[in-house]
Design a protein around this nucleic acid. Sequence first.
DNA 1: CACCCGCTTGACCGCCGGGTCAAGGCAGCG
DNA 2: CGCTGCCTTGACCCGGCGGTCAAGCGGGTG
Lengths: 215, 215
Amino acid sequence: MNTSTGPAERRTHTEQGIERKQQLLDAAAVLFSSKGYANTRIADICAAAGVAKGLVYWYFPTKEELFAELVRSMRLQLRRAQAAAMDPEADPLTRIRQGTEASVVFMAEHRAYFALLDVERSQDELSGRGSDVADVLREGSDVYATDVVRLVRDAQQQGLVPDGDPQLYAVGVLGVVSSFSHALRNGSLDVDVDELAAFVGGWVMRALAGETVAR
Amino acid sequence: MNTSTGPAERRTHTEQGIERKQQLLDAAAVLFSSKGYANTRIADICAAAGVAKGLVYWYFPTKEELFAELVRSMRLQLRRAQAAAMDPEADPLTRIRQGTEASVVFMAEHRAYFALLDVERSQDELSGRGSDVADVLREGSDVYATDVVRLVRDAQQQGLVPDGDPQLYAVGVLGVVSSFSHALRNGSLDVDVDELAAFVGGWVMRALAGETVAR
DNA sequence: CACCCGCTTGACCGCCGGGTCAAGGCAGCG
DNA sequence: CGCTGCCTTGACCCGGCGGTCAAGCGGGTG
């Protein structure tokens, strides 16, 4: 019997089942990122996917968990794109630029999806603390942060970036990417994607290593 | 009769009434910024303010409108702080730095309040388009953006900032402020406020005017 | 064929929360 | 003293939405 209420319940899925689950995730991604989490009804997702409402609860325990799974999957994809773009031989500063530009491009290619990661920021103050989602989200931001922090530290050791709290630099790098992501999605910016990526890359490089006249 | 359902209804408030309204706004600000809009119940606000639930609807037509009023008030305060910090005699680049640093300080002093402006970002994709709140929010971001765009353009004309889409630069400036705001509030950053402001100011200056080695 | 099991359905439930309303205080004023 | 209008209360309403469930379907296996 599978309709039970076991807490740590595992389901085995056939190939068809996995496909169906992905359909639901896809539909949810589109809706969440266009209407937002709170304004997206389970019923909407089902309508979009062309299935009955109850089916969602065959694949996901709760709406929150569905959302969390989306976020996890997005994070994975993004990190893969970043890793692929970063030349392991290059110096840390260059790697930061590569990762940054890759993020921008990725975000442009997956606007709908990427919007979710942007919601991420808000969600962790929107959702009550202690909710399982909040944990996933918070933990996620940390991943990026520590990554960049490490790169910044390396760059500082090589004299590529002036001294100063690496944490601060990291916040700046991550923040600017997410800001441009948001702006692009909002449509207040209509530039060529590669052009934008280059701009952001340059922005980050200057902010990290650039020199400016004394105050 | 005042309990009616007139659409463009105006109420006259006594001094006491205005105070009470402010109490409600204050309570709402704290709750919204800590628990988020969606997770804050009207009942919570009333409990925090020590009044009965019905009273909210004496002062505000809906929960959304209450939120919108908060946002408007915050925007006003922030802009005042910025204006006060910017030396009208200074060059545009310096003015940007001054405005940036003032924003950071302001945000630190009014963490609870300022969180709202951060929610702003998310809210305009979280709330369904067409909701009156969305309009207020969107219009608000524009105000800052055009402000910064103008300053950037001036700076470019004076050769202080290299050529390029001013819109892009503006997004970068606004984004970085909001990012650091968010990080500070999250507690992942515990630096002295003035120190942080100086860092952000420097960051923006370098990103706008700094030079870096060729690619 | 019979049985299991993954899958699918849609009516149904219960709660939560935004919003309403009738009924009062309590000033100030004529 | 009564009246008018601002303010305050708390019980109540009701629609929406997350989540449940009993029932049925279909393909694979013994």
